[in-house]
Every structure is written in structure tokens, then in C-alpha cells.
Computed example of a mutant assay.
Amino acid sequence: MVIRRIEELYASELTALDKRERHQTILAIDTLVDFESWARMREQFGWSFEDACDAWKRAIDRLLPPTPPVS
């Protein structure tokens, strides 16, 4: 279900990738945003909610190609 949601959320960015890259990127995002990663940032590292969200956003932005322009 999480994989399908990632595919849905980032559909326009993922279309720029070939099948193998798309699959790897989806799995990397899934790993990045799992509960354990969130708990580690918040509890183990003591990051604020905002800092953890910012880290997620930056990491996801680096994984994805640029969003294609809307035509």
C-alpha cells in the first residue's frame, strides 16, 4: 500500500525514469519514510518535527528527477 501511494504521489517525476531506476527510487523513498527512520530521527537524534520533515523533503527531492512542467 505504501509503495502504491509513493507511485501515486510522485507519478509525474517517476515517469522520467526507466523501469529499473523507477523501482529503485520507489524502494529508496519507502525505506526513507518508514516508521523506524522517523523514530530514529525524532527519538534517537532528538530532531524536532520540523527538522525531521525538512530532512525527509530534502532527501526525497534529491532522489527524484525534477518535476516536469505542466503543459
Rank of each mutant, 00 (worst) to 15 (best):
S48K: 12
L32W: 02
I60D: 03
W47Y: 05
D30F: 13
W38A: 15
I29S: 01
P69H: 08
E36K: 11
D34W: 01
W56T: 07
C53A: 15
L63R: 01
A39W: 13
R42M: 15
R58H: 14
A39D: 15
D30L: 13
R4S: 10
D54A: 13
D34R: 08
D30P: 00
I3N: 02
P69M: 06
P69W: 09
E36A: 12
D54N: 15
M41T: 02
M1C: 03
V2T: 10
R58Y: 13
S71H: 08
K57Q: 15
S12F: 01
C53F: 12
I26E: 07
S37M: 13
A11Q: 07
P66W: 01
E50L: 07
I26H: 05
I60K: 03
E21G: 10
G46L: 10
H23N: 13
T31V: 01
W47E: 09
D61V: 04
E36F: 06
K19R: 04
E7Q: 12
K57H: 11
P66C: 08
D61A: 06
G46Y: 09
W47P: 07
T25C: 08
I29Y: 01
L17E: 02
M1K: 05
L27V: 11
K57R: 14
R42W: 10
P69V: 11
L17I: 05
R22Y: 04
E43F: 07
K57F: 14
P66Y: 02
Q44W: 05
T15I: 05
I6L: 05
L63Q: 08
T31P: 02
W56M: 15
L27I: 10
R4G: 11
R5Y: 08
E50D: 13
I3M: 03
D18F: 03
A55L: 03
S71T: 10
H23C: 11
M1W: 03
E43D: 14
A11V: 01
D18A: 05
I29E: 10
E21V: 03
P65A: 04
W47D: 07
T31S: 09
Y10D: 03
T67I: 09
R20W: 06
E13W: 02
K57V: 15
K19N: 05
A16E: 14
Q44H: 04
A39V: 14
R20C: 04
L17D: 03
T15A: 11
I60T: 04
T67R: 09
P66V: 15
T25R: 06
E7I: 03
I26Q: 04
E13P: 00
L63F: 09
Q24R: 10
E7L: 06
I3R: 05
E50I: 06
L14K: 06
L14Q: 06
R4N: 13
R4W: 02
P68W: 00
I60H: 02
R20N: 13
I6F: 04
I29V: 09
P65M: 03
R58A: 15
R58K: 12
A28W: 00
F45D: 10
R22L: 10
E8M: 03
V33Y: 00
F35D: 15
V33I: 12
E50Y: 00
I3W: 00
L14F: 12
A16F: 08
P65E: 04
D54G: 12
Y10V: 05
P68R: 00
